[in-house]
Simulated scan of single mutants.
Amino acid sequence: MTLVVHVPLGDRAYDVRIGAGLIADAGTEIAPILARPRVMIVTDERVAPLHLPALETALRKAGIDSDSLILPAGESTKSWPHLSRAVEWLLEQKVERRDVVVALGGGVIGDLVGFAAAILRRGVRFVQIPTTLLAQVDSSVGGKTGINSAQGKNLIGAFHQPSLVLADIGVLDTLRRRDFLAGYGEVMKYGLLGDAEFFAWLEEHGPRLRHDLDARAHAVAHSVEMKAGIVARDETEQGERALLNLGHTFGHALEAATGYSDRLLHGEGVAIGCALAFDLSARMGLCSQEEPSRVTAHLAEMGMPSRIADIPGALPDDAALIALMGQDKKVVDGRLRFVLAREIGAAFVSDAVDRSDLAAVLAAAR
Rank of each mutant, 00 (worst) to 15 (best):
M1D: 11
V5H: 11
P8I: 00
D11N: 14
D11V: 14
R12H: 14
D15S: 06
V16Y: 05
A20G: 11
I23W: 10
A24I: 12
A24P: 11
D25M: 12
D25H: 15
G27P: 12
I33P: 13
L34P: 12
D44P: 08
E45C: 06
V47N: 11
L50D: 04
H51N: 14
A54P: 13
T57I: 14
K61H: 15
S66K: 05
D67L: 14
S68Y: 11
S68N: 07
L69Q: 01
L69C: 03
L69D: 00
P72M: 03
E75H: 04
L83E: 01
A86W: 11
V87G: 11
E88D: 15
W89S: 05
L90Y: 11
L90S: 07
V100H: 13
L104I: 13
G105F: 07
G106R: 02
D111C: 02
L112F: 08
L112C: 02
L112Y: 06
F115H: 10
A117D: 02
A117T: 03
A118L: 10
I119H: 07
L120T: 15
G123K: 09
V124W: 09
P130I: 12
T131G: 11
L134M: 11
Q136G: 07
S140M: 02
G143K: 04
K144Q: 08
T145F: 03
G146Y: 00
N148A: 00
N148S: 01
G152F: 00
F159R: 07
F159N: 09
Q161K: 09
P162R: 10
L164R: 09
A167V: 07
D173K: 14
T174L: 05
R176S: 15
R176N: 12
E186S: 06
Y190W: 08
L192D: 00
D195K: 10
W201G: 02
W201F: 06
P207Y: 04
R208D: 08
R208F: 04
L213K: 15
D214V: 13
H218C: 08
A219N: 04
A221P: 10
H222N: 01
S223H: 01
S223E: 00
V224I: 09
A228L: 03
G229V: 01
I230Y: 14
V231I: 07
D234G: 01
T236D: 07
E237C: 01
E237Q: 01
R241G: 03
A242D: 09
A242H: 12
A242M: 12
A242V: 13
L243N: 05
H248F: 06
H252A: 02
E255C: 00
D262K: 13
R263L: 13
L264R: 08
G267D: 08
E268Q: 02
G269Q: 00
A271Q: 08
I272R: 05
A275L: 06
S281V: 06
R283Y: 03
G285M: 04
A300E: 15
E301W: 14
R307I: 07
I308H: 03
D310M: 04
P316A: 01
P316E: 00
I322H: 00
L324K: 01
Q327G: 12
D328Q: 01
K329P: 05
V332P: 00
V332H: 12
D333G: 14
G334W: 03
R335L: 02
I344F: 00
G345T: 03
A346C: 08
F348E: 04
D351H: 12
V353F: 09
V353Y: 10
V361I: 08
V361K: 14
L362I: 10
L362D: 12
A363T: 07
A363W: 02
R366A: 00
